[in-house]
Simulated scan of single mutants.
Amino acid sequence: MSHLDTVFTALAHPLRREVLSVLSGRDDGVAEIEELAERLEGVSEAESTARLRAALHHTHLPTLDEAGLAEYDPRSGAVRYRESPMKELVESAVRSSRDPRSRKSRSSTDS
């Protein structure tokens, strides 16, 4: 999976977008997993804060970390927003659109 696909996959889930919204709205861009679980409980389909915390820890925060949208330290529970993912995303898309091999593969799949 390309980095671009990883970013779009991460952004596809509404809870992950809410996590990014909370983090980006903070002056320091940092929150603890416990705080995120409490704040997002009403947004999630999880039955409890504990289940939401588990989903954040095992699924959502690692996905955001892998996509480069947030940094997650599972040992401390700290989550930090990364401010430049969209810039990198756009630059990546521009680079791939300039790559002649990329255009060939797209045009052969467009037919």
Rank of each mutant, 00 (worst) to 15 (best):
L64P: 05
V94T: 02
H57W: 05
P85V: 01
T63N: 11
L89G: 00
E45V: 10
P74N: 02
D28K: 10
T109C: 04
V22I: 14
L52I: 02
P14E: 15
L89P: 00
H3P: 10
E34Q: 12
K87I: 03
R51T: 12
L69F: 06
T9I: 10
S21Y: 08
R39W: 05
T109N: 10
R16I: 07
P74I: 00
E34N: 15
P85E: 01
E47A: 12
S111A: 13
S92I: 00
P100N: 06
A70D: 07
Y81P: 00
R51V: 15
S107G: 02
A37W: 12
D110A: 15
A55D: 09
A67P: 03
R53F: 03
H57N: 11
P14M: 08
R80P: 01
L23G: 02
L56D: 02
L4R: 07
D99V: 01
R95P: 06
A12T: 08
R106C: 08
E71G: 04
S108H: 05
A70C: 09
P100T: 03
E41P: 02
H60L: 07
T9D: 14
R98S: 14
I33H: 04
R75H: 12
E32K: 10
V30Y: 02
S108D: 13
A50H: 11
G42F: 11
P85Y: 08
L15W: 07
H3W: 13
I33V: 15
R51D: 15
S97T: 13
L89M: 05
A55G: 08
L36T: 10
R51A: 14
E66Y: 04
L64Y: 04
T63C: 02
Y72K: 08
L89E: 00
A67Y: 03
T63V: 03
R106I: 09
T9V: 12
H3L: 14
A54V: 03
S96V: 04
R98P: 03
L40E: 09
A50C: 03
E88Q: 06
S105F: 04
S92A: 12
S108A: 11
H58T: 05
V22D: 11
L61E: 06
A55N: 09
A37K: 12
G42Y: 06
R80F: 01
E18K: 13
E83H: 00
E18N: 11
D27M: 05
S21L: 15
E88F: 00
G42T: 07
E83Y: 00
A55V: 06
R82S: 00
S97P: 03
S24I: 01
